[in-house]
């Protein structure tokens, strides 16, 4: 994490979501973070056009978990040519829902107004530009802070979820012991409920709760002599399992 972030909360570097070529000179790059329960979209807007840009706005298309801006984009000053502005947009999860492919895909529409100056007429004119961008968010954005399942409920739920709903993933070449892994995972609200050591393997039983109430149960297996972890994920909505696995990969490697 960076300055001022709780330890363990990894934020991916910004990537370009809307290249300047596709948006008449406006480049949008961004990343996502969950900070003390608040979901944020961190954006950088760069003006690569000759005109000044003003009056920025963003809308989201329907998406799998109802992500939506919780307020307007707070960009109060014009963006001059070659200028970049950084802004954090808080998000809610009460927007309209439509299952996306992939599940964590987010399409957005961005609008800005280009202000052109004409020396000949000694005047300015404006034209509105709308562009569609696309990005994907880590599912950990939706892992809530009260995702530590009651231990008895965990055991009953684990038994109750059929084995067809279990997915297994190998996480290769991780050199962390189980305590370090537990701490890192807790930083993104993956909670360890129990730990057992059987035949030289540490087995961690963990739970995650998504903003929409879906619970995910996991078993993380590690051996001191083997840097490859084995992750088993059980969920009543098994389509989320591979996206939960991606979060394990991301946080354990960073």
């Amino acid at each position: 994490g960076g300055v001022g972030m709780p330890s363990g909360s990894y934020v991916s570097p910004k990537t370009v979501w809307l290249p300047a070529m596709k948006a008449k000179g406006l480049e949008i790059s961004g990343t996502f973070a969950r900070r003390s329960g608040v979901i944020q979209m961190d954006l950088s807007l760069t003006n690569k056009a000759m005109s000044v840009m003003v009056d920025f706005a963003i809308q989201f298309n329907k998406n799998s978990f109802g992500l939506a801006p919780a307020g307007p984009l707070q960009i109060l000053t014009p963006l001059s040519p070659n200028q970049t502005i950084d802004v954090s947009l808080p998000l809610s999860t009460v927007g309209p829902i439509m299952k996306m492919e992939p599940l964590n895909n987010l399409q957005f529409t961005h609008r800005q107004i280009h202000v052109h100056a004409t020396q000949e007429l000694n005047a300015t004119f404006e034209n509105t530009q709308r562009d569609r961008g696309n990005c994907q968010y880590p599912l950990s954005l939706l892992f809530v802070e009260d995702g530590k399942m009651d231990r008895q409920v965990f055991l009953a739920t684990w038994k109750d979820i059929p084995s067809e709903n279990e997915s297994q993933f190998q996480i290769k070449d991780i050199h962390l012991n189980s305590d370090a892994a537990t701490n890192k995972l807790q930083g993104i609200n993956i909670f360890t409920i129990a730990k057992r050591t059987v035949e030289g393997q540490d087995m961690l039983y963990q739970s995650v709760k998504l903003t929409n109430g879906i619970w995910v149960l996991a078993e993380l297996r590690m051996q001191t002599v083997n840097p490859n972890y084995m992750l088993s994920v059980k969920c009543r909505a098994p389509e989320v399992s591979q996206f939960v696995y991606q979060c394990y990969e991301l946080v354990l490697r960073n």
């Binding site: 231990r151 008895q152 055991l155 057992r196 059987v198 035949e199 087995m203 297996r221």
Partner: peptide, 20 residues
């Protein structure tokens, strides 16, 4: 007593997963 039973249940789960 309840805690002991829960601890035991987790141990059984881990055992069953290692030696199915």
């Amino acid at each position: 007593e309840m805690d002991g039973a829960l601890e035991e249940a987790f141990s059984r789960l881990a055992e069953s997963r290692t030696n199915p």
